[in-house]
Design a protein around this nucleic acid. Structure first.
Lengths: 196, 196
DNA sequence: AGTTCTAGATACGTCAGCGTATCTTATTGA
DNA sequence: TCAATAAGATACGCTGACGTATCTAGAACT
C-alpha cells in the first residue's frame, strides 16, 4: 500500500470480499488461502483474520457478496423460446461463477465442518431453482399464451436451469448453442407448450 | 506390515488403487494426499511414488480402478418405468462415488495440469451418458413397445441420468423417491412414450 | 493538535505434506 | 543356497500456509 490511501471500514471489507470472490473463481475452494486473498486484495493476512477467522467463513462471505452483486439485464426478444435461449446463453457465459460456487459446496461436503452448508446450501439451492430472470420471461410467455402454466410444475420449471448447470459442471466448458437448443426445443418446450 | 506377508506386484498395486479410491471417496480430491493413501494401504510413501509420481496420476488411476470394478446387476421388473426407477435409485445410492469422481474433475479444472482431463474427462462423460444398465432396460422397453425409439435422441436418452446426477450434486444427499418419480413420470416418460 | 483505532507490514514458530535418500528385510527366481 | 528386486521403514530437508505477536503509521474524530 506504499503511497496509496488506506482503506477502512466498509470500503475495505468490500474490497476484501471482491478479492476473495475472484480468488475463488481463479483457484477454487481447494486452493483458496488467506495468503492468496491477501495478496489479491493488497493487504496483510491479520487484516483478514480480524474479520473472518476461518477460511470457510471468508469463502461463504465471498459467495454472499457475489450473490448480491451479480445482476444482469434479462432478455426480451418477444418470443419465449428466444428469451429462454438468450438467458441460458448468459448463464453459460458465467459458468466460472457456478464452478466456483460449486467448489465451495464440495469443500463443505468433505470438510463436514458444518460451517459451510446450512445457509450456503440454501443460497445455492435458491439460485438453482431459477436462473435470474426466469420468472420474468415465464410470466411474459404466459401472458402471450405461449406456454401452459398448468404444466409448469416446480421440477419442470427448474428443468432448463438444471440441465444447463449439469452440462456446465460435466464439461467445464461453455454450453454449445446446439446443446442449448436441444434443451429448449427438444425437452423443455414440448413439456410446457400448448400445441401438444 | 509387522508380521504380515509382504504384497508384491499386481496384488500390491490393486491394494494401492483400492486404498486410493477409498481415500478419494472419504476426503475428496482436494485433501487427497500420498500420506493418506499410504496410511490407508498400510504402506510407505516411496512405494507409491515409484508407481505414480504425481498425486493426480494416482487419483486418475484410482478412478480407472473404480470404473473397472463398480458393476452391479441391473433391474428387470417387467415394466420400463419400474426398471428405470430402480436403476436411478441404485445410482443415487452410490452418490459418494459420483461426488468423488467429480471432485477429481474439479481438481483437474482448477489445476490446469493437463494431466487430469483428457481421458478422465472422456471416461467421466462416457459414464454420464448412461447409467449402467440403461441400454439394457431401454432395449427391453422398445421390444415391449413401451417407448418410441424415434424419440430417443441422445440428449433425451441422457435425461434421467443427467437430472439424477444434477440432483445428487446439488444436494449432496440421496435423491428422494419423490424426485425420482418426478424425473421419470413427469419429464422423461412423457417425452418418450407412445401414448402422447 | 492530540488521541484512538486499526490498516498494513513483518517476524516468528509450527505443522502437514512432499520429495529424496538410505537401510533392512522379505520374496521370488535361478 | 544365493542373488536380485523391491516392499517397508525411517530420516532429513524444504516449502507453503497458518496463527500469532509486535510495530509503525495513516485516518478519523475530538
Amino acid at each position: 500500500m506504499a503511497g496509496e490511501t488506506r482503506r477502512r471500514g466498509a470500503d475495505l471489507e468490500e474490497a476484501l470480499l471482491e478479492a476473495a470472490w475472484q480468488e475463488l473463481v481463479a483457484v477454487g475452494y481447494a486452493r483458496f488461502t488467506f495468503e492468496g486473498v491477501a495478496a489479491r486484495a493488497g493487504t496483510s493476512r491479520p487484516v483478514i483474520y480480524r474479520r473472518w477467522p476461518q477460511r470457510s467463513d471468508l469463502a461463504v462471505a465471498a459467495v454472499r457478496h457475489f450473490s448480491r452483486s451479480d445482476l444482469f439485464e434479462w432478455p426480451d426478444t418477444g418470443s419465449f423460446r428466444d428469451d429462454l435461449v438468450a438467458l441460458l446463453r448468459e448463464v453459460s457465459a458465467r459458468r466460472l461463477s457456478l464452478v466456483a460456487l460449486f467448489s465451495v459446496q464440495m469443500g463443505g461436503f468433505f470438510e463436514e465442518t458444518g460451517t459451510t452448508p446450512g445457509e450456503l446450501r440454501d443460497q445455492f439451492l435458491a439460485e438453482r431453482k431459477r436462473p435470474f430472470g426466469f420468472d420474468v420471461i415465464v410470466q411474459r410467455a404466459i401472458e402471450r399464451g405461449e406456454i401452459d402454466p398448468e404444466r409448469l410444475t416446480p421440477r419442470i420449471a427448474a428443468l432448463p436451469g438444471d440441465l444447463l448447470r449439469h452440462e456446465l459442471l460435466m464439461t467445464m466448458k461453455p454450453v454449445s448453442e446446439e446443446a442449448i437448443a436441444e434443451i429448449v426445443d427438444d425437452i423443455f418446450l414440448p413439456l410446457v407448450t400448448k400445441s401438444r
